[in-house]
């Protein structure tokens, strides 16, 4: 049943134009870290937010192995759906993934479980799409770095304690490291490896 449900769920109505719009929203987010952008709503399957689904439909295909952070039944439907619409291989080892979806950030593996790229090819790293319950601008931790004119305050709720400690290490690895995209409903926010996040609020 899960399978038939999955393949009948639609992807983008207008694949060419919607993929372009989602990409431009993401490019804005990536080049102005800490800025929350909205994407056009798209049909999705739980537990994926519409924004997560839109990102996957835009970025993922047979050349990009994908890792999902759960295996129970809902993911069967999601996996079939993504295989159908994106044709992406779904991998079991986070290290092999070009993209990883984390729906339960409180249980996320260490960054070191993912590919961090090498000094010569730092682009060969995993991009983490992390679903969270709250994204707020103008409050929270202070972000600074390329794409940020002075500094930006950003609040991301429900991240585990160790996340920001790991982020500090990730930033120190630059140019190696993972890039993160946070999603919430139909909003997203990018945290590329170049961004320095201050210790406390």
């Amino acid at each position: 049943m899960a399978y038939s449900h999955a393949v009948t769920a639609p992807g983008f109505d207008e694949p060419v134009l919607q993929a372009q719009q989602v990409f431009r929203a993401l490019l804005t987010a990536q080049s102005q870290p800490g800025r929350i952008v909205k994407v056009d709503s798209v049909a999705t399957l739980p537990p994926l937010y519409p924004a997560t689904m839109a990102l996957l439909l835009t970025l993922v295909d047979r050349d990009t192995p994908l890792w999902l952070d759960l295996s129970p039944s809902p993911w069967e439907a999601v996996s079939s759906h993504l295989r159908f619409h994106c044709g992406c291989p779904i991998v079991t080892a986070p290290f092999d993934a070009a993209f990883a979806v984390l729906s339960r950030p409180e249980k996320m593996p260490d960054f070191s479980a993912f590919s961090l790229g090498s000094d010569e090819c730092p682009d060969r790293s995993t991009t983490l799409i992390i679903q969270v319950e709250t994204l707020l601008e103008h409050r929270g931790r202070r972000w600074a770095g390329p794409g940020i004119a002075d500094a930006r305050r950003v609040h991301v709720a429900e991240l585990p304690e160790h996340f920001w400690r790991q982020w500090r290490n990730n930033h120190a690895l630059f140019p190696r490291g993972v890039d993160v995209i946070f999603t919430q409903a139909d909003h997203l926010l990018a945290l590329p490896r170049s961004v320095h996040v201050a210790e406390d609020n």
Binding site: A19, Q30, L59, P122, D123, T127
Partner: peptide, 19 residues
């Protein structure tokens, strides 16, 4: 084609992340 655009878009995101 869309597959080529996706490949280039992924490269652009990495390029922005590593100025």
């Amino acid at each position: 084609d869309e597959q080529t655009k996706r490949m280039i878009r992924r490269a652009l995101l990495k390029a922005v992340a590593i100025p």
